[in-house]
Amino acid sequence: MARSMLIISRQSPWAGPSAREALDIVLAGGAFELPLGLLFLDDGVFQLVGSQRAASVEQKDLTANLQALPLFGVDALFAARRSLAERNLDESSLALSVEVLDDAGLSALINRYDHVITI
């Protein structure tokens, strides 16, 4: 049985390569059928905002990439309620279907996985 892994992505799409690196880990792991989860925490929840225009800063469209996660077999997608609220983001209008968790839910989530990587 493959060891499960939770990747915690806590940087915005525009704060350097972190958000992309987190996604690359998840896509690679998903392609190998590893049991993976992806949690958007802190500025990471900015990855979930729709209608971002990567081309205007000559970058690749991370939000478009995120839509492919279910096809890569990664369905365990989570976001932190506190992080969304702090940034005044509406849970119901995110660009990706995620399960929104409060602090206690996040503690429990982290403790469900064999490994955790925070990026």
Partner: peptide, 15 residues
């Protein structure tokens, strides 16, 4: 840096 304040609320009692 936000790591500290972000981490604390995620600590379960056994953590």
């Amino acid at each position: 840096d936000s790591r500290f304040s972000s981490c604390l609320p995620l600590l379960a009692d056994s953590d």
